[in-house]
């Protein structure tokens, strides 16, 4: 059933989790958590603003601490783990990437919407020239058919990516869809295939196992589910499950559990559970980082946050279109007061 003897995990709480804590990470938190993850032998740790390098903005939320300082802090305590950064072309630039690399980031993940891989060429090529391990990250994978995914992944492979990820940004994919997508990529790509889940439909673990079964060897997890929406595949649970399955991650099971319990749980503003709004993200196929923005807009305009998210899903918003949330909320409020 599981052919791959080992899976390499990238811990994304210090990047994807940035959304859940409104980009308020401090140097101290990043240093402490990174050091512990390093000691638990997590191979890759991603540190960036939730929307990647350069993401600190009014659109997505201003970072409390300059992400370069966070990256620097992470690098300073990681003698085993490699520090990864995320970059979304259109938000971050090659200059940002170069600065992160200078500070010691070893892996670059270049993310685009599932249909827009060609805007990543320059960034993937630059990351490779800088000697970084490079990942192409195809977001909102549920929004396009598998043939499109294959075609876009091939583009990223042709630019030099070492791995391509199927990224379920909305947590909307079902296990049979994950299976089909990973299998299709394994059939045509020579490079590694990865999978990034969100737990909005409580399918992160199931989808991740399906991906691994189909041959994905790179998997993202967020410890204590500290990621956008309902979080990602819960790292400490995944490590334990893979251990039971006899799949090597290299990560210490007890240590990763302790980090979740003792270091990460205390910084969560609220438990990373599936509430009705995060459920709607998966159900309506909406980018997971829209969650808190929709809740805030719902409060400001006196509308149901679920109505906002469903409408956003209907309008086929892609990742990064947070500005649409306030716009839609204002429209719903207007329509509501008219009919009321």
């Amino acid at each position: 059933m599981f052919k791959n003897p080992e899976v390499k995990i990238t811990e994304v709480a210090l990047r994807d989790g940035s959304h859940a804590i409104r980009h308020q990470f401090t140097v101290e938190q990043v240093r402490t958590i990174t050091k512990a993850l390093n000691d638990a032998r997590v191979p890759y740790i991603e540190v960036s603003h939730g929307d990647g390098l350069g993401g600190s903005s009014l659109q997505y939320g201003l970072s409390r601490t300059d992400e370069l300082k966070l990256i620097e802090a992470a690098v300073s305590v990681a003698d085993y783990s490699k520090i990864s950064v995320l970059l979304l072309p259109g938000i971050g630039t090659i200059e940002d990437l170069k600065e992160a690399q200078k500070l010691g980031a070893k892996m670059a993940r270049i993310a685009t919407h599932i249909t827009e891989a060609d805007i990543s060429k320059q960034h993937i090529e630059t990351a490779k020239e800088l000697g970084m391990e490079t990942v192409g990250f195809l977001m909102m994978s549920h929004m396009a058919p598998t043939e499109t995914l294959v075609e876009q992944a091939k583009l990223m492979e042709s630019y030099g990516a070492d791995t391509v990820y199927v990224v379920d940004s909305a947590g909307a994919l079902l296990p049979h869809e994950v299976r089909e997508k990973i299998r299709a990529l394994k059939d045509v790509l020579e490079i590694e295939v990865g999978f990034h889940a969100h737990n909005n439909l409580s399918l992160a673990m199931g989808n991740t196992l399906a991906a691994i079964e189909e041959g994905a060897t790179r998997i993202d997890g967020s410890i204590r589910c500290l990621g956008a929406g309902a979080g990602n595949t819960q790292t400490e649970v995944l490590v334990a499950v893979l251990d039971r399955l006899g799949i090597e991650t290299g990560i210490d099971v007890y240590k990763i559990m302790d980090i979740a319990e003792e270091l990460v749980a205390p910084i969560l503003p609220r438990p990373q559970e599936i509430n009705r709004d995060s459920l709607v993200l998966g159900y309506a196929g909406v980018y997971s980082s829209f969650l808190l923005h929709a809740e805030r807009a719902a409060e400001k305009f006196g509308v149901d946050s679920r109505d906002i998210l469903v409408e956003i899903g209907k309008r086929k918003a892609v990742g990064g279109q947070e500005d649409m949330i306030v716009d839609v909320a204002a429209e719903l409020a207007k329509a509501g007061s008219r009919s009321g």
Binding site: L58, Q59, G90, V318, G320
Partner: peptide, 23 residues
């Protein structure tokens, strides 16, 4: 100043939207 660009592939194609934030 800061600028962000997003490409949206929706069909039928969306018309250009711009959001301006100023502090």
């Amino acid at each position: 100043g800061k600028a962000i660009i997003i490409l949206n592939p929706a069909e039928p194609p969306i018309i250009m939207r711009n959001t301006v934030y100023a502090l």
